[in-house]
Design a protein around this nucleic acid. Structure first.
Lengths: 237, 237
DNA sequence: CGCCCTTTTGAAGAAAATCAAGGGCAGTGG
DNA sequence: CCACTGCCCTTGATTTTCTTCAAAAGGGCG
């Protein structure tokens, strides 16, 4: 059975007819757990399955010549890990479990059959790729000053976990370490820590453990210059 | 008539049958010139045409809150500017002519017709998007130290203009200003200039005007830790 | 020639990396 | 129950990298 987050995520991308929904929910899905620090996919692999995160957080990353790591994207519950599989391409980066994860996978051949029956799925895939691309571009554009970068990342992750709340106080469960954040923004863990402190001093966030409280999400958006529109591909025509 | 660079570029992506070639070369194409500093497409637009560069260099860019610009990609002769058009999506960034450009454009509706007749084109489009994505990821991973970044960019542009030469001395015509390079790497023009000097001092490049001479391309690759494989999507199964 | 655009260089200041060490907290085992 | 251990967060001091501000020099073109 297809787990709920999967079909909900697809439904968020495109309008599914009743028939489409039936096709998607009849896809044969397997579940597996992946322990934190374990790689789900490695660079160079040609996965035969489309993996999607059901529970936990995963991350795309590459290792640099000096051994340091750059995280190029986070995958949250409902996100697809291996669009490369659907394009029959080798991975040009690895994917790791940032927390313990529950992962669903679907054979690419089954996906292809489903696309043939329900062409809507093709545009869903295209949209996922557009959003991924937009996120990459945004990260690139946004890498100027460390505080703003951190604020922006918090805004992005908040918007992706709680897409409907747009004003007032809010909260973000950030189940990853500050080192992960550092790897994602391309700066030192030590420096990330100082930037967290700065945001606290500016009273834009507070946190206990790994729950970040955001007293005024709009204020954080302004600080980060965050515009969530890149996260939702615009409607098809 | 379709200009040569267009069909050659498509042919570089996928194997075209004689029939495919005929379909592609019968696409109705219009040519236009775009003066340097002129925008070809603006963020938010929904272009009805697929634009491709025939002569000159163009660049994708976004403007930051503080007014500064980030170039997120270069488009060289043969490159496609507006894949967003094919996906019927609004542009999330602008495209500008970095030099005087000759631009070809093809109506998206005609492209769609051609795809229906020659499905190979669909995989060509997918491959273009994969390469674009890989370039973005590489830029993100590679933004650590300024000399290396510059060396890497030179390698990338060299590999894209002269894809077959892989060893020995070589040359790169860089028709853009150091400020453009700075905007692409996210650092100050002043600092870029110093990094150019550093590469000269390391005897990895020399230049007069805008022609960069590379005495030993392999040495530059090593310095930049450049691996060109991300520029060519692997073959389709 | 004079103008504008680009490159180059210098000096001072800001931002981030590096090096180093202390502190909290959860899990483990005596 | 408490000590130990490992992991993560936090902070300080120092050095490196990059930015900013400023100005001079080269080069093409009217």
């Amino acid at each position: 059975m297809v787990p709920k987050p999967f079909i909900e995520h697809v439904a968020r991308l495109v309008n599914l007819s009743e028939r489409d929904r039936r096709i998607v929910s009849s896809l044969p899905v397997s579940l597996m757990t992946v322990k934190r620090h374990r790689d789900l996919l490695s660079s160079g692999e040609r996965p035969d399955y489309l993996y999607t995160v059901v529970e936990g957080w995963a991350g795309r990353y590459a290792i640099r010549a000096d051994g340091s790591r750059r995280i190029t994207g986070f995958m949250l519950p409902g996100d697809f890990c291996s669009m490369h599989a659907v394009c029959r391409q080798a991975m040009d980066h690895s994917i790791t479990a940032l927390t313990d994860c529950l992962i669903a996978h679907i054979a690419v051949s089954d996906i292809e059959k489903a696309i043939a029956e329900a062409p809507t799925l093709d545009s869903a895939i295209r949209r996922v790729k557009l959003i991924d691309e937009a996120m990459l571009r945004t990260w690139l554009v946004n890498n100027h000053d460390a505080v703003r970068m951190l604020a922006h990342l918090i805004c992005e992750l908040h918007a992706r976990t709680i897409p409907d709340i747009s004003t007032g106080p809010s909260t973000l469960n950030l189940p990853i370490t500050q080192e992960h954040v550092a790897d994602a923004l391309g700066i030192t863990p030590v420096h990330i820590n100082r930037m967290f402190r700065k945001l606290r001093e500016e009273k834009l966030i507070t946190f206990s453990g790994r729950i970040i409280d955001i007293p005024d999400i709009k204020a954080l958006h302004r600080r980060a210059n965050f515009d969530p529109s890149y996260l939702r591909a615009t409607s098809n025509q």
